[in-house]
């Protein structure tokens, strides 16, 4: 399938991708957004977002993303369902391939974000969907009146723990250090909740029972004393951080040791005309508002790049 050459192609549809779409649409660059498997990004898995400026009573994550999407479309951004399977940044114009079609673009904005990380235990993988989960809002419902555990010590772990007390009889937070990384306000919420208790300096050794096909318990090892103990849980929610979604770009663009895309002078990557924004290039701030801010920067950087681009460079298949 052939398609027309796009000025701006955006991969990803979280706050970064949709803000880049809004700004490039308003600059009349007719952006195409390929939304990806986890369309709308991580906010689609949250409930009330209380730290996005302009919403004094908070706004539900999926509603905020619905608004961003509608706003980008209102100004002419084209957003399509699809999952990018390959990119070619070696020849211009750049090529982006989905399972259905192939697209050519003069500039590419990478906003593929980051996805929840797992512990990496074989028993964990075997029990996904049977008690192991990375999405409290999706799966909390299945644990009414049951004891569960949340693994992690950051903001998302605390948010999940507090949210899950709506369903669970008890929530044990399992953290491998003796202090939380979560913000003060989230820590206070978790400490004040009488349904939540904490296991400190605890590493998860095993989740039982993959033989039975359901979660029955988890084995924890105390990293200071090496003591092991088993706690009975029906569900394990893993919230131990994120991995950037950059596998598509491996070998074609500069990344740091963690797999994050390296950006400089704004959102520029090591490939001219390719820009990165949001969590795919940010392991420090990782907020909806910073992702949106960098999406705006990527749009402006792409616009400036296009202004300076000799027409023939965009059109011809020049080998880089």
């Amino acid at each position: 399938m052939t398609s027309t050459l796009r000025n701006v192609l955006i991969v990803g549809s979280g706050p970064a991708g949709l803000t880049a779409a809004l700004y490039t649409a308003r600059a009349n660059l007719k952006p195409l957004v390929i939304e990806g498997l986890e369309a709308g990004g991580q906010l689609m898995l949250t409930t009330l977002v209380e730290n996005f400026p302009g919403h004094r009573d908070g706004i539900m994550g999926p509603d905020l993303m619905g608004e961003m999407r509608a706003q980008a479309e209102h100004f002419g951004a084209e957003i399509i369902r699809g999952y990018v399977t390959a990119v070619d940044l070696m020849a211009r114009p750049y090529t982006v391939t989905t399972s259905e079609a192939e697209y050519k673009c003069r500039t590419l904005i990478i906003a593929t974000g980051a996805s929840g990380r797992l512990l990496g235990l074989p028993s964990e993988r075997a029990l996904i969907g049977h008690g192991v989960s990375t999405c409290a809002t999706c799966d909390g419902y299945f644990f009414r009146g049951k004891p569960i555990a949340v693994v992690g010590g950051g903001d998302s772990a605390m948010e999940e723990a507090v949210f899950l007390t709506r369903f669970a009889s008890h929530v044990t937070v399992v953290h491998r250090r003796d202090t939380l990384r979560a913000s003060k306000i989230m820590q206070d919420k978790a400490f004040a909740n009488e349904k939540i208790s904490f296991e400190w300096n605890a590493e998860v050794e095993e989740i039982k029972d993959s033989g039975k096909g359901e979660v029955t318990a988890m084995v924890l090892r105390n990293s200071l004393t090496n003591e092991r103990k088993e706690i009975r849980v029906d569900g394990v929610f893993v919230a131990i951080g994120h991995t950037p979604n950059t596998r598509l770009f491996a070998g074609q663009i500069e990344m740091d040791a963690g797999g994050y895309i390296v950006t400089q002078s704004g959102t520029r990557t090591s490939v001219p005309g390719v820009f990165a924004c949001g969590d795919v290039q940010d392991h420090v701030y990782r907020q909806a508002i910073t992702a949106a801010g960098s999406g705006c920067m990527a749009a402006i950087d792409a616009e400036k790049y296009l202004e300076g681009l000799p027409q023939h460079l965009g059109e011809a298949h020049v080998t880089a």
């Binding site: 709308g40 689609m44 898995l45 994550g61 809002t137 999706c138 419902y141």
Partner: peptide, 10 residues
Amino acid sequence: WAEWCGPCKR
């Protein structure tokens, strides 16, 4: 699926 499940809607 369920109404409250974002990924289900996707």
